[in-house]
Design a protein around this nucleic acid. Structure first.
Length: 428
DNA sequence: TCATCAATAT
DNA sequence: CATATTGATG
């Protein structure tokens, strides 16, 4: 098993350090960082797009090895992993698709893998990122994307690895250090059945095999939390807001099973702390207030977008529409999510694509002949911090993926790679 | 490292 | 039952 630092070590030292320095020095907008010499394995079953991408990358002096056949590519890779810096794999491949490649590569070697796809449907993006894809490119890939690709990948992999200090061995399973099999714990659990299911499993497990499996910690899904709040609301007028009464109400009136009084008590504690915190300190710090009140940054969107180091997804930090969109907790019926779709970025933050105000936006940063219209609400997702959004975040905490449009994305939408601004101390 | 959850101890 | 502490998680 190769070491995470192999990217650094195995490239020629001088090129490498020059590369780093030039990368770090360039926060200048117009200058693209050099990508020369980066050794890329490019795999795409479609010869046309393969050629296109290969040529484009050659323009930026990447050293590209390319395959149409996934098996051949993998065979090459196992022998030559030490001379490859980056793997770009098409999602839709016969035999070995992007996900298969991700699995194998993250297991057997330690290389950043970028997934490329013509579509960017819900599943494609979700699975790719969850399986540890370092980046997700939508075909046709623009030259701007290629220009900053290595910078993103490098930044992501190196930062996350050096962030843990020198420890090298522990994170070898993948970029996120997660086992693929465990990623979808919550996938089958939906809606109100969540807790019942998990608790049932617990009891079953405990009966069947006491020694091996730990009981799974329950999770307060949005739906369950909603019921909790409904129960609290009903009881509050009677001054009977105690765990026991809440539990009773939830069980009898809201058909919740499998909860214990302690579960409710624990949640109630957190719920109250949350309310207290909110009433005590509704004032934000100056800095936060400044940020929240700052005008929407639209002058150079790409330059202001960030990449999340864990998911590889882009986010944009100043979308007030999204930041201010409240989540609705009706006293009955399903929760009304705001005009947004939330992706969990990490345990602290959500990325959102507000679907409101779809007015096309022309990026002034581009030269006239290159100008294109964006749909800002979709192009530039923003981040909502949990600290600023109490009631929104508490209910959504445990969700990997809250919601997505049922239909595939608008064709104008994509997770466009932005320019990482190398903010070493990002707000998020 | 750091914040926060749910569980458990007091 | 309320509150403090713990352990796990990401």
């Amino acid at each position: 098993m190769s070491l995470p630092s192999n990217i650094l070590k195995e490239r020629e030292a001088e090129t490498c350090y020059n590369e780093i320095e030039s990368l770090m020095d360039h926060d200048d907008d117009e200058d693209f960082p050099t990508t020369s010499g980066i050794r890329v394995l490019l795999v795409d079953a479609d010869p046309n797009s393969l050629t296109l991408m290969k040529n484009l990358m050659a323009q930026f002096s990447y050293r590209v090895t390319y395959y149409e056949n996934g098996e051949d590519a993998l065979a090459f890779l196992t022998k030559n992993k030490h001379v490859i810096d980056l793997v770009i794999w098409d999602y839709h491949m016969p035999k070995i698709n992007g996900l298969e490649a991700l699995k194998t590569i993250s297991k057997e070697m330690d290389l950043p893998v970028v997934i490329m796809s013509r579509d960017h449907k819900k599943d494609t993006v979700k699975k790719s990122t969850l399986y540890g894809a370092c980046d997700f490119l939508v075909k046709p890939v623009s030259k701007e994307v290629v220009a900053v690709l290595w910078r993103h990948v490098f930044n992501k992999t190196m930062l996350s690895k050096s962030g843990l200090g020198k420890s090298v061995g522990s994170d070898s399973g993948g970029l996120l250090g997660q086992d693929n099999d465990d990623l979808y714990q919550n996938d089958e659990a939906e809606g109100s059945k969540n807790v019942e299911d998990s608790v049932e499993q617990n009891t079953l497990e405990q009966i069947g095999d006491k020694s091996s499996s730990k009981k799974r910690r329950m999770s307060w899904t949005p739906d369950l939390h909603h019921k909790f709040e409904v129960a609290v609301g009903k009881l509050s007028s009677l001054d009977k807001v105690f765990p026991k009464s809440i539990l009773k109400c939830m069980q009898e009136e809201l058909n919740v099973e499998g909860l214990t009084r302690n579960n409710v008590a624990s949640h109630l504690q957190k719920y109250r702390q949350h309310a207290e915190k909110k009433s005590n300190a509704p004032q934000k710090t100056l800095e936060d207030a400044d940020w929240r009140n700052a005008p929407l940054v639209t002058s150079k969107p790409l330059l202001n977008s960030n990449i999340n180091l864990q998911t590889g997804l882009r986010y944009f930090v100043n979308d007030q529409t999204a930041a201010n969109a409240p989540i609705q907790y009706p006293t009955s019926g399903p929760i009304q999510y705001p005009l947004s779709n939330y992706l969990t970025m990490n345990n602290n933050h959500f990325m959102t694509n507000p679907l409101a105000n779809n007015a096309p936006y022309t990026d002034p940063f581009y030269q006239p002949e290159q100008q294109q219209q964006y749909y800002p609400s979709l192009q530039f997702p923003s981040v909502i911090s949990k600290q600023d959004h109490g009631n929104l975040s508490s209910a959504m905490e445990n969700m990997d993926l809250i919601s997505y449009p049922d239909s595939s994305y608008d064709q104008h939408e994509s997770f466009l790679p932005g320019y990482n601004n190398f903010d070493q101390n990002p707000r998020f």
